[in-house]
Each structure stands twice: as structure tokens, then as C-alpha cells.
């Protein structure tokens, strides 16, 4: 019979030290959110907006002409817009670390406010030191987000090393991590879980569905994610966000990593 402990020891360490050291983030090749270069945008072209299933891209017109609107909080990273754009205004990119504290930071803004990205509060650090306990609720996802959340505990990402744990009981949880577009049947269990959590508590909308409904917004059985259901402290768009993007967002929440996105602009 195999001695599994020996098997494990022989296999060695697989865990990446990312983002602490120079280790790779393990996401090579992965396509992230489309990169928007508004200067390349052609007038009277609606190719991208017409191919956007969740309506993340729209066209706004005023006296000065037509303008594209872009909301990464609705984007499912399907890459269709990058394929139909005739002028490379929308491009494939590897920008995936999109976790933000404010919903408006996911919406493309022509001019950025001059203030620094975030006013860092040390409250969350004061409360929890460096540890965080998460209660996950699946409020109607496609299970892509669950698959990546489960991956957080595989040897590569090994979330425990960062002092972050999943907990079965909402009573022990600091963070409610919600996936899915919130179906009529999951709304009540979701709210009960939230109400069962001690204060102070935080809410994370994981994946585009939980932010806005994404590809499954509205209809006869779904809401638009957490919009109007619960107050959200951190938004992580993606369909699904990859494990590194999830870790990044958790660290942003804990003030242990910097937010990369402001007004829809991605800066690393």
C-alpha cells in the first residue's frame, strides 16, 4: 500500500509564492477583460455593442456625437467584441485583476478623477489582523466560479498560506462571498446567511453574475446580481474570475494589495 505522506513529500512544494515574491501568477495565456483604446474607435460603428450579450458595451449619443459606454461590471470576457472590432479599439488582453471597491470604478470614464485610487481604511485590518474567514453562497451561478473557488485550496494557490479560510458557519464569517445572479429561490437563503453573520461584516460580489447578473441577468427567475439585494464592499468581475484574480481581490479588501482599476482604466 502506498505511503501517501512520502508521496506528498517526494512531490515537493507546488505552491506559488505569488503575489508575495517574483513567482509566476500561473495565468499565462489567459485572456482577460478587453482593453479599450477609445482613440481607435470609428464613428457610427456599433459592431461591438451589437455583439455584446450582457449589454456591457453601449452607445451613448449627445450633441457632440456618439460615444461608446463600457461597463466591466457587466462584461463576461467572451472576447466577441475584440473579434468584431474593425479598428482595434477593443483588444484582447491579459488584464484580469479587476477587483475594485467601488462599482463606478468598473465603468469606463473619459477623464479620471485626480484623487488617488482609494482612500485606504485601516478598519478591516484593525478588526481582523491578517486573517479572514469567508462564507460562500452560491446564489445561482453556472458553477464556473465555484470551480475556481475550489481551486483556491489546491496546492498551487493554497489560500490558507495567506490567512484566509472558508468557514461552514456564517456565525464565524467575516466576509460573505456571493456568486451567481441571485435567483428568486436563493434570495431568502442568501439574506438569512447575511443576517446570521456577526458585525462588522463585508460582502464580495464574485463574478460578473453577482455584480450585475451578467449573461443571466433578469428574466423570470433572476435578479441583477446583488444590485439592490445587499451592500457590496468589493466587486470582482470575470466569467469566472481566475483564482489569482480572486486572491488579488481578497488582498485588496484586506488592504494588502493595490487596486489596479480606476474608472475602467487598468494600470498595473
Amino acid at each position: 500500500m502506498p505511503i501517501w505522506t512520502l508521496f506528498g513529500v517526494k512531490r515537493g512544494v507546488a505552491t506559488s509564492a505569488w503575489p508575495g515574491k517574483e513567482d509566476p501568477d500561473l495565468q499565462s495565456g489567459l485572456l482577460g477583460m478587453p482593453k479599450f483604446l477609445p482613440d481607435h474607435c470609428q464613428e457610427n460603428c456599433r459592431a461591438c455593442a451589437d455583439s455584446c450579450l450582457p449589454g456591457a458595451i453601449g452607445v451613448e449619443s449627445d450633441s457632440s456625437g456618439e460615444r461608446l459606454t463600457l461597463d466591466y461590471g457587466k462584461c463576461i470576457a467572451c472576447q466577441l467584441c475584440t473579434e468584431v472590432c474593425p479598428t482595434d479599439a477593443l483588444n484582447k488582453s491579459s488584464d484580469w485583476a479587476f477587483g475594485v471597491r467601488k462599482r463606478e470604478d468598473l465603468v469606463w470614464a473619459e477623464a479620471l478623477a485626480s484623487q488617488p485610487a482609494q482612500e485606504l481604511t485601516s478598519k478591516i485590518q484593525k478588526c481582523f489582523g491578517r486573517s479572514l474567514h469567508i462564507r460562500h453562497v452560491d446564489a445561482g451561478s453556472c458553477n464556473g466560479c465555484e470551480s475556481e473557488l475550489q481551486a483556491l485550496n489546491n496546492p498551487y494557490y493554497n489560500l490558507h498560506r495567506l490567512g484566509i479560510f472558508f468557514t461552514p458557519s456564517p456565525r464565524f464569517a467575516d466576509l460573505l462571498l456571493v456568486t451567481g445572479s441571485v435567483t428568486y429561490a436563493m434570495r431568502e437563503p442568501l439574506l438569512e446567511t447575511y443576517n446570521g453573520m456577526p458585525e462588522p461584516r463585508w460582502v464580495m460580489a464574485m463574478g460578473t453574475c453577482a455584480i450585475s447578473g451578467g449573461a443571466t441577468a433578469g428574466g423570470y427567475s433572476c435578479a441583477h446580481g446583488l444590485e439592490g439585494v445587499l451592500p457590496v464592499d468589493i466587486y470582482v468581475p470575470g466569467c469566472p474570475p481566475n483564482p489569482a484574480a480572486m486572491i488579488h481581490a481578497l488582498l485588496v479588501l484586506l488592504n494588502r494589495a493595490a487596486q489596479h482599476v480606476q474608472g475602467g482604466h487598468y494600470a498595473k
Binding site: 445561482g140 435567483t183 436563493m186 449573461a215 443571466t216 423570470y220 427567475s221 433572476c222
Partner: peptide
């Protein structure tokens, strides 16, 4: 609990989307 009405969402869509 997770019934999202997916079949209904296909109505009226073009095959690519």
C-alpha cells in the same frame, strides 16, 4: 434553487450570441 430560466433566454437570440 439555481433555476435561472436558461432555456427562455435563448428566445430571440442569434446563434452566435
Amino acid at each position: 434553487f439555481k433555476h435561472r430560466g436558461m432555456e427562455k433566454r435563448f428566445e430571440g437570440l442569434q446563434p452566435l450570441l
